[in-house]
Structures are given as C-alpha cells and as structure tokens.
Nucleic acid binder design. Structure first.
Ligand SMILES: Cc1cn([C@H]2C[C@H](O)[C@@H](COP(=O)(O)OP(=O)(O)OP(=O)(O)O)O2)c(=O)[nH]c1=O
Ligand SMILES: [Mg+2]
Length: 786
DNA sequence: GGGAGTCATCTCA
DNA sequence: TTCCATGAGATGACTCCC
C-alpha cells in the first residue's frame, strides 16, 4: 500500500496534497476532480500556506505511523479483551436506541449565494461566489460545476472559473433571511435547534401525530413554506435522530428531501455503505486516520473494527465511533445552551511592526468588549491568538481573578500577552474571551456547598448537578434524571412578593420606556384554584390592559403586604444584605413576627439589625434546603423523570474524568460578585420563600441571555403552583407563559397567549421572538450522541 | 491522583 | 493588482499544585 502511494506521489504530486475539497459536496458530482485538484495544487505549491499544510500533513502521517505501531504491538489476548469490552458496549448502546422521535434537518441551499441572488436577480444562472479574492464563503451551484466551493480561496476559484462573479459578504442580509426561515421552522417545532444561520433541527414527532401527516408530507410543506416566505430553496432530511437527519438532508440537495424511516433495519441498511466522512464530526483528519490505520471507510466498518477502536481511542471517541456504526444519534431536545466563548480575529499583511500589531489589538479589544456588552457578558479567561507569517497558529491565555469586559481591561491583558511574544511577525491576531460569569457548570469542590448555578439548574430542593446521574437498576437508563422532591414546608403567610430587580445605573436596556417594548407576562397556572382576595384583585387588574402601568404602581402602593428585595440599594452598598427589606418602606417581612421576633426560632432581633437579620433568614433558608435534601432518598422515592440536556453516553463515559471548574468563593461582602450574581441571590431567596404570587420586574436584566434561559426554566419549575407576573424584555422569560401583554410606548399593543400571538407573523410579539432567535443562535455539538 | 489552567488540534458553517 | 477567513465548540495532552 505504501508503495503504490509513493509511486502515485511521484507521477501525480497533486494527489498527495490533501485539501478539504476532496470531500464530496452537493452540486459537484460532474466535476473533473483530478483537474480541480491539479489546479489547486499548482496554485498553492510553494506558498507559505502550502508549506504549512505539508508540515501538518507530515505530522498526521507520523500520528498514523504511531497508531499502526500500537496496533501491531497488541497481543492476541489484549485484542480479544478489547473486543469483548466493545461487544458489550455495543449491546449497551443498542439498548439506548430510541426510534420514537422523528427529527428533521433543514439546510438552505447555497445559502449566502442564494440570498445574494435574491437581492440581485441578474446573478441568476451565472457562476457566483460570496467572499473575496482571499476566501470565499460559498458558491452557487453554477460555480460548483467548476469545482468552486466554500472555503476555497478566491484567486484559486477564479482560476477554476475565470468568469466567476464575486459578491462581498453581507451578514445583515443573511441574518434577515435566516430569521425568515426560522419563522417557518417555528411553526413545526417551537423548540427547534438553530444549528447555524442556514440550518435547523426540528423534532416533528408531534406535528406528524397531531396533523396525521407523514414526515415526508411535513418536509414538503415546510420546504414550500420556507420558499414562500423567503424565495429561497432548502433541503430536508428526516430520520429517527439528529445525526442521521443531518446526513439525509444532504442526499437530495439542492431543493430536495430524503426520508429515513424509523425502523432499525432501514437505519442499518442506510448506514452500512455510508462513507464515514458524511457523518458530522468526522473531518479530513479523522477520515484519513481511520482509513490509513484501520482501513475504515464506511460506517459499517466501525462495528467490524470495534475492538481495535476501543483499544486505540479514548472511551468517548470509541463510543462515538460505535454510535456511528449503529446509526445512533441524539433524540432529545437540549434545554439550553450557554455561550462558551466570544472571539474576533483579523488577517492582514504579515508584519512585525509592533505599533501596527498593537493598533490591531486595540481594535480587537474594543470590538470584543462591545460585543460582550451587548450580551452583558464578563469573562475571566482571555486568549490571544496569533498566526505567524508561516501560518503557524499560537495561542496564549490568562485566567484572571476578576471578570472583565471593558475594552481597557481586555487591552491591558491582551497587550501583556502580546508583549511576551515580541518580536514576532504575524498575519493574524485574534482575541477570545471565555469562562464567563455565571457560566460555571461545575460541581463545587465541596459537594455540600450550595451554588447559585446549581440552584438554578437543578432546583431548590435537589441541589444536584445536572450532570449527575442517579442510576437505578442499571447504568443503561436512557435519560438522566434528577429526583423531584416534594416539600411540605409551610408556605409563608405573606401572599405576594414584589421584587424590583432593576438597576437604575444600567441604562442599556430598560432606561427609555418610550423607545422600548415591554412585556408583561401573566402566568395563571394555579389561578383557578386560588380564590384568595389578592388573587382576584390581581387578576382584575392585570386583565385590564389599559391599566398595566398603573397596575404595577398599585402593587407598589399595596406594598405593606410585600417583601421588597431591592437590588439597587444592594448595589450601592456592595454588600449583599437586603437592607431594602426593612428600609424601603416595606414594613413587614415574612420571617419577623411583629417586626421583632423570628417566626421560626423565636430569636429576637430589632429591625435596625439589617445585615444580621438577613444572615439569620439565610440561615433558615439553608436549613430548609438541607432538610429537604436529607428527607429525600432518591431510591426510596418514586422519581419523576426529568429530561436533562446532557446526553447519557457522553456523560457516562466521561463521568470520572470530567473536569469542571469549581465555583469561586464568595469574597467579603460579596465583592467579587457580578451584578448578575446579585440578581441571582435575590431570586434564590425569593424562590425559597415559596410565595403564592410572585411579581418579577426585570428580574434577570443583569444576567446574560443564555443564563437567563436556564433561570427562567428553573423559575417555571419552582413556581408551577404559584402565580407569576413578569415584566421583561427578553423572550425566554415569558415565552412559556399563559398570557402575554406586549407594551409599546406605555400602551398595550397585544394581549393573548404566546401561541396565538405567534400565529400572526406580523405581530409585535412574533417580531420580538424572531429577533431573539436570531441573536441567540449558536453552534452545535458535533459529537452529539444519543 | 485529581483539579485548574494552558495549548494545540479538529470540526463545522 | 489581488495571493488561503471568521466565529464557535469539543477534546486530549501536559503542567503545576495541594
Ligand atoms: C462551509 C462554509 C460555509 N460558510 C457559510 C456560507 C454558507 O452559505 C453557509 C452555509 O453553509 P453550508 O450549508 O455548508 O453551505 P451552503 O448552504 O452554501 O450550500 P449547500 O448547503 O447547498 O451545500 O455558511 C462559511 O462561511 N464558511 C464555510 O467554510
Ligand atoms: Mg446550506
């Protein structure tokens, strides 16, 4: 094999230049691949880029050699052992197969190019690419006939197709059309996953059932809907899981669809001859590796070589490969995905001019800071990325004690990083921020330590990390669950809790009521069952749209009944005591009988002891938490299953070595806390008090949108037996509520259930929803296992 | 030995 | 004339430290 390879190398050197373009792509079937490869090679040969690719290639060759050697060293006994382990694992994985869901993957055809053609119809029928001379983002199908495609440098594309028209990228346009497509997706799955600007995953199980349609009919209708809404064509794939659906959407591209039935035999047949490169997550290198080390080219062969794969790859990779061989993929709908990082980078003529490089850094720092502020993010890990004139990529990172977001702070640390590298000649500089505030997903180093994130993610009573797997009879349970715990603690006799979480200093979002839409949400889950006077009162008021503004005021006027936890005051004092509880005209607090004696333990404490009182009430809250936890023995209770976003296999295989960051300790007076964290504390305290009526007025404005989603989800869980009135600007805050009132310029412009409002595409609410969807789109997990 | 931090690689649109 | 992008996520190896 090595021989034939090297003889080919000498006669046709371009064949050894492995580019990403060798991968089959829709619309390139009739292309003379040999010719394209030769031209790409001719154009690249000798360049700095090419030399770097050669270095990388050599490195991979080395890796392949190493793996081969390791393979050869395995004894027969070892091989048989690994085979046994793999066979067992295959059975386990097979047991997780879920054929009950129907997933549809939509992918727009030549998205950027199609959008450009819409806005300039004269491009129709002509070979065209979006991008510039140095790189093109995509090409239309006419251009693909010449071998021109995404990720190809423009000057090579022009060589392949001299009449190729170049159109510069215009993200605004793509975003606009992306929104339109998502509006259509939404009709079929309100929780669809936007995988990128031009694609989405939809769980159409319910649509098929409710409307008595086949998945093929749904796909047809959806594609027609997208076309009518946008004038753009798309392709769809339907399959029992996302991994397969993604493969299917590519089969009859462009403007086509492919249905893989929810049938094990059909799946196995489909997968058997499928080239592994078609699977998302297997790219150029993995394909190369698996082919040259194990001779694997099709999915089926993954199973045949399962033993050896298990021996040479990490458990998580081996699992993934087995899943590919079995045609298994994720079927669950992840609840929330938090942004992990934010970055920007720029390429320029390679230079060692320090003033120039510093200037670039300034620009990047400012852009990054601005972007972060848009999402109210603060990060503590800053990574500087550099690409040398020879295309070598280097990164340098610092993790700080404090969370930062200002351009000054970013620049300060970025320039330190850069200085340490000087002198250096670069062609690219980039900055990335990660480890966001409120982004901790970790198990605390002290497992009994309560954390805000845990509280929000896992619930008041459980205090469990969502990744924790409570296993019952076997490890093979398909879902993760956490145990739903009941509490019979008495509910406080105060009925309403009004919380104003707004920060007057934060003028970003809410400062100008005249210019902003406002959503007042009314959740009446338990309304019919509650017949207390306060309830009826609130109902009457909220049901009168004209009075909305006034209604809120009235609540404040009635505040003798309310506990007000006022963040504003907290912020000014930097410490965490809810001094507003007693100082801001609220004369009652649930815990203090006669404003003097603790309801629970009888301890006496005058109202002027603000911080002491807060400490005391926190103590009782903690007590309550602990009691609920110890009362709950997961094995003795009937657990209520809850779907958790983390998939079973991944977390199971990684359970032991998962490295999670443990949350930072609270500094004196909470000085190291962000505004968002302060809001969370308020929220946590309020939820723990278990009111029947809750008014949340911009309760999470200081928290980033993604975290907000988790919080909202948790609030919903914790307030299922309680009436919640929310005032908010963010969509996830209110999307699941029973009633939405949209306020604009102080007037109620709409008033209905979210579903009803969404039916009308031009409703103000629909527009807000689309805007949110657009802003919150993010990447997907390519190793998505079931 | 495990957690946090750093860095390089791979993959995707 | 131009001469291989940008933004994001996952994973694994390695180091330092308690
Ligand atoms: C592949 C790729 C896509 N993109 C952008 C441009 C694409 O229009 C958009 C979607 O990517 P794709 O869906 O991969 O490509 P496409 O929609 O242009 O063509 P088709 O699906 O019909 O094969 O993402 C990049 O910016 N860089 C890339 O390397
Ligand atoms: Mg596409």
């Amino acid at each position: 094999m090595a021989e034939s390879e090297s003889s080919e190398v000498t006669s046709r050197p371009w064949q050894s230049y492995h580019t990403v373009y060798t991968n089959a792509k829709a619309g390139m079937e009739g292309v003379d691949k040999e010719k394209v490869q030769r031209i790409v090679y001719e154009m690249s040969k000798g360049s700095k880029y090419f030399e770097n690719e050669e270095r990388k290639e050599a490195f991979i060759k080395q890796k392949i050699e190493n793996m081969r050697a390791r393979c050869a060293k395995l004894t027969a006994a070892e091989i048989s052992h690994y085979q046994k382990v793999a066979d067992k694992r295959i059975l386990e994985l097979e047991a997780t197969r879920d054929l009950t869901r129907i997933w549809l993957h939509v992918d727009m055809d030549a998205f950027y190019a199609a959008v450009e053609t819409l806005s300039n119809p004269s491009l129709k029928g002509k070979p065209m690419a979006v991008g510039g001379m140095s790189m093109i983002s995509t090409a239309n199908y006419e251009a693909r006939k010449f071998g021109v495609r995404a990720a190809m440098p423009g000057f090579i594309a022009r060589k392949l197709c001299p009449q190729l028209i170049f159109v510069p990228t215009d993200f605004k346009k793509y975003t606009y059309y992306s929104d339109l497509t998502r509006k259509v997706f939404q009709k079929y799955d309100a929780n669809f996953m936007a995988a990128s600007l031009d694609e989405g995953y939809l769980d159409i199980t319910n649509v098929c059932k409710e409307r008595g349609m086949t998945s093929g009919e749904v796909a047809e209708e959806l594609r027609k809907g997208v076309y009518e809404e946008t004038g753009l064509t798309c392709s769809a794939g339907v399959a029992p899981n996302r991994l397969l659906a993604k493969v299917c959407s590519d089969i009859n591209k462009p403007n086509g669809q492919f249905i893989l039935p929810n049938d094990r035999m059909a799946v196995m047949t489909f997968i058997s001859s499928l080239p592994i490169r078609k699977i998302g997550g297997i790219g150029k290198v993995t394909e190369h590796l698996l082919r040259d080390v194990f001779g694997i080219t099709t999915c089926e062969e993954m199973l045949q070589k399962s033993g050896i794969l298990g021996a040479l790859f990490s458990p998580s990779s081996a699992d993934f490969f087995l899943c590919v061989g079995l045609g298994l993929g994720s079927t669950n709908t992840p609840q929330v995905r938090l942004r992990k990082s934010m970055s920007n980078e720029r390429t320029f003529l390679a230079t060692g001019d320090e003033a120039f490089l510093y200037h670039k850094l300034v620009d990047l720092a400012e852009m990054l800071s601005a972007d972060m502020k848009k999402e109210a993010l603060c990060g503590r890990t800053l990574t500087l990325k550099m690409k040398t004139a020879s295309f070598e990529i280097r990164t340098r990172a610092v993790t700080l004690q404090k969370y930062i977001c200002s351009s000054e702070d970013i620049l300060k640390h970025a320039s330190k990083l850069l200085k340490a590298e000087l002198p250096i000649s670069l062609r690219l500089i980039g900055l990335r921020m990660s480890q966001f505030n409120e982004d901790k997903d970790g198990t605390p180093s002290d497992p009994t330590q309560k954390t805000l994130s845990n509280f929000i993610v896992s619930g008041v009573a459980t205090g469990r990390n969502m990744d924790d797997h409570i296993s019952f009879d076997s490890d093979l349970s398909d879902d993760h669950f956490i145990t739903e715990l009941k509490t019979d603690l008495p509910i406080d006799n105060h009925e309403i809790c009004y919380n104003d979480f707004r920060d007057p200093l934060d003028s970003n979002e809410v400062s100008d009521p005249n210019n902003s839409n406002c959503l007042l949400i009314y959740n009446n889950d338990e309304m019919e069952k509650n017949d207390g006077s306060l309830n009826s009162k609130s109902k009457a008021k909220v049901n009168t749209p004209e009075m909305i503004g006034h209604t809120l005021k009235s609540y404040e006027a009635e505040a003798s009944q309310l506990v007000k936890i006022d963040l504003d005051t907290m912020n000014k004092r930097t410490n965490l005591s809810d001094d507003a509880v007693s100082s801001s005209n609220q004369n009652k607090q649930s815990l203090w009988v006669d404003d003097y004696k603790c309801l629970l333990c009888g301890i006496e404490m005058p109202s002027s002891f603000v911080e002491e009182r807060q400490e005391h009430s926190d103590f009782h809250l903690a007590e309550r938490l602990q009691k609920e936890e110890s009362d709950s023995n997961p094995r003795s209770l009937t657990p209520k299953k809850r779907f958790i976003q983390k998939d079973h296999i991944t977390s199971q295989s990684k359970r032991k070595k998962k490295h999670k960051s443990s949350p930072a300790d609270v500094a004196e007076d909470g000085e190291n806390w962000s505004m968002g964290q302060r809001q969370l504390v308020c929220l946590a305290r309020v939820l723990l008090q278990r009111r029947k009526i809750l008014v949340l007025d911009e309760a999470t404005t200081l928290v980033d949108t993604t975290t907000d989603n988790v919080i909202q989800w948790r609030i919903r869980e914790e307030t299922s037996r309680c009436t919640v009135i929310r005032v908010a600007h963010r969509i996830p805050t209110i999307i699941d509520n029973d009633l939405v009132l949209v306020l604009d310029e102080g007037k109620v412009v709409e008033y209905d259930s979210p579903t009803e409002l969404l039916k009308n595409n031009s409703s103000a609410f629909s527009k807000l929803v689309m805007e949110f969807k657009r802003r919150s789109s993010s990447g997907n997990n390519h190793w998505g296992l079931p």
